[in-house]
Amino acid sequence: MIINNLKLIREKKKISQSELAALLEVSRQTINGIEKNKYNASLQLALKIAYYLNTPLEDIFQWQ
């Protein structure tokens, strides 16, 4: 199981879903879906999320 901390980290950094989506060149709905565990981010997208949030990938998506 993967624990998804994207919403928590994004909100801590005061970045909206729309802002993050624009940086990543995806839709806001994609970010929303990832945060609600409706969609799994591809490895490429997960790495981009970590880069733009300046946060280690394993802090955003944790295996349990």
Results as ranks from 00 to 15, higher is better:
residue 2 I to G: 06
residue 3 I to F: 10
residue 3 I to P: 05
residue 3 I to C: 14
residue 5 N to G: 04
residue 5 N to K: 06
residue 5 N to T: 03
residue 5 N to L: 07
residue 6 L to R: 01
residue 6 L to E: 01
residue 6 L to S: 01
residue 8 L to S: 15
residue 8 L to W: 07
residue 9 I to L: 09
residue 9 I to E: 04
residue 9 I to H: 06
residue 10 R to W: 06
residue 10 R to Q: 03
residue 10 R to V: 04
residue 12 K to Q: 15
residue 12 K to T: 11
residue 12 K to R: 14
residue 12 K to E: 13
residue 12 K to D: 09
residue 13 K to W: 06
residue 13 K to T: 06
residue 13 K to Q: 12
residue 13 K to L: 13
residue 13 K to E: 06
residue 14 K to V: 05
residue 15 I to Y: 07
residue 16 S to M: 05
residue 16 S to C: 06
residue 16 S to E: 04
residue 17 Q to R: 08
residue 18 S to F: 08
residue 19 E to R: 13
residue 19 E to Y: 09
residue 19 E to G: 10
residue 20 L to S: 00
residue 20 L to T: 00
residue 20 L to K: 00
residue 20 L to R: 00
residue 20 L to A: 00
residue 21 A to L: 02
residue 21 A to K: 02
residue 21 A to P: 00
residue 21 A to G: 06
residue 22 A to T: 12
residue 22 A to R: 14
residue 23 L to K: 12
residue 23 L to W: 14
residue 24 L to C: 15
residue 25 E to G: 15
residue 26 V to H: 02
residue 26 V to I: 10
residue 26 V to C: 07
residue 28 R to S: 11
residue 28 R to D: 11
residue 28 R to G: 05
residue 30 T to V: 15
residue 30 T to M: 13
residue 31 I to M: 04
residue 32 N to D: 15
residue 32 N to W: 08
residue 33 G to N: 15
residue 33 G to P: 01
residue 33 G to I: 08
residue 34 I to N: 00
residue 34 I to H: 02
residue 36 K to N: 15
residue 36 K to E: 15
residue 36 K to M: 14
residue 36 K to P: 01
residue 37 N to G: 15
residue 37 N to T: 04
residue 38 K to D: 09
residue 38 K to M: 13
residue 38 K to Q: 14
residue 38 K to A: 11
residue 39 Y to G: 07
residue 40 N to L: 11
residue 40 N to Q: 14
residue 41 A to Q: 03
residue 41 A to D: 01
residue 41 A to L: 15
residue 42 S to M: 04
residue 42 S to V: 05
residue 43 L to P: 10
residue 43 L to N: 06
residue 43 L to M: 12
residue 43 L to F: 14
residue 44 Q to Y: 12
residue 44 Q to L: 10
residue 44 Q to D: 13
residue 45 L to V: 06
residue 45 L to N: 02
residue 45 L to E: 02
residue 46 A to T: 04
residue 46 A to I: 07
residue 46 A to Q: 10
residue 46 A to C: 12
residue 46 A to Y: 13
residue 47 L to F: 07
residue 47 L to D: 05
residue 48 K to L: 09
residue 48 K to W: 05
residue 49 I to K: 00
residue 49 I to G: 00
residue 49 I to H: 00
residue 50 A to I: 03
residue 51 Y to W: 11
residue 52 Y to I: 15
residue 52 Y to L: 12
residue 52 Y to W: 11
residue 52 Y to P: 00
residue 53 L to D: 00
residue 54 N to P: 02
residue 54 N to I: 04
residue 54 N to G: 12
residue 54 N to W: 06
residue 55 T to C: 07
residue 56 P to F: 06
residue 56 P to Q: 06
residue 57 L to P: 04
residue 57 L to Q: 02
residue 57 L to C: 07
residue 57 L to E: 01
residue 57 L to N: 03
residue 58 E to P: 08
residue 58 E to A: 12
residue 58 E to R: 11
residue 58 E to V: 09
residue 58 E to S: 12
residue 59 D to T: 08
residue 59 D to P: 02
residue 59 D to N: 09
residue 59 D to L: 11
residue 60 I to K: 01
residue 60 I to C: 02
residue 60 I to Y: 01
residue 61 F to G: 02
residue 61 F to Y: 04
residue 61 F to W: 09
residue 61 F to H: 01
residue 62 Q to R: 11
residue 62 Q to H: 09
residue 63 W to A: 05
residue 63 W to K: 06
residue 64 Q to P: 13
residue 64 Q to C: 10
residue 64 Q to H: 13
